[in-house]
């Protein structure tokens, strides 16, 4: 399928382009890969904190009891939807707990992958970007951002339900 071709083709293209431009590909690769140490050190505490909190919440079954009335959205996905606009690492942690309980390939696993892949951390981006230039009146931007997330989630659900 097309999906399995995209990554090899991107890698091939990047390397060929770099060799034509006379970039020392090996050295550059190593330099880039080194940056992952920093990222992983920052990531671990956030992951631990969130996996801890989300596991307690989901295993207590309260979500299923409380949100059972929203039949359009599967219960298992609700913690992901709540956390996704707020924090990237947290939603990643929730995604892990979903994969662990339901596997990555079923209805729930695929839906969670789509939602994580097609939305972003609206609150975080809003705070960071507007904060950096001193904007205080954000007008309709929060609504626009959250509606865009909601559209992504809705299309993801439709896509998994009808195409998978």
């Amino acid at each position: 399928m097309i999906s399995s071709l995209i990554i090899p083709l991107v890698v091939l293209f990047v390397i060929i382009y770099a060799i034509i431009k006379k970039v020392p590909v090996y050295d550059t690769f190593i330099e880039g890969a080194k940056e992952s140490f920093d990222m992983i050190l920052k990531l671990f505490p956030c992951l631990l904190a969130m996996i801890f909190a989300v596991n307690i919440l989901t295993k207590s079954n309260i979500v299923a009891n409380l949100f059972g009335f929203i039949s359009f959205v599967p219960n298992e996905i609700i913690p992901l939807i709540i956390m996704r606009p707020i924090s990237g690492t947290s939603s990643l942690a929730i995604l892990t707990t979903i994969y662990e309980s339901f596997g990555p390939d079923g209805f729930i696993g695929t839906l969670a992958s789509y939602i994580q892949g097609t939305t972003d951390t609206t609150f975080y981006i809003l705070t960071l970007y507007f904060g950096s230039v001193g904007i205080k009146k954000i007008r309709y931007s929060l609504w626009a951002g959250l509606l865009a997330d909601l559209v992504s989630i809705t299309i993801s659900i439709l896509f998994v339900s009808f195409v998978l």
Binding site: V14, A18, V23, E31, G32, A33, K34
Partner: peptide
């Protein structure tokens, strides 16, 4: 992550 950051660095340095 390390692998992908390496590839991305190549794309960045080559001007792609």
């Amino acid at each position: 992550m390390a692998l992908w950051l390496g590839i991305a660095k190549i794309a960045e340095v080559s001007g792609l």
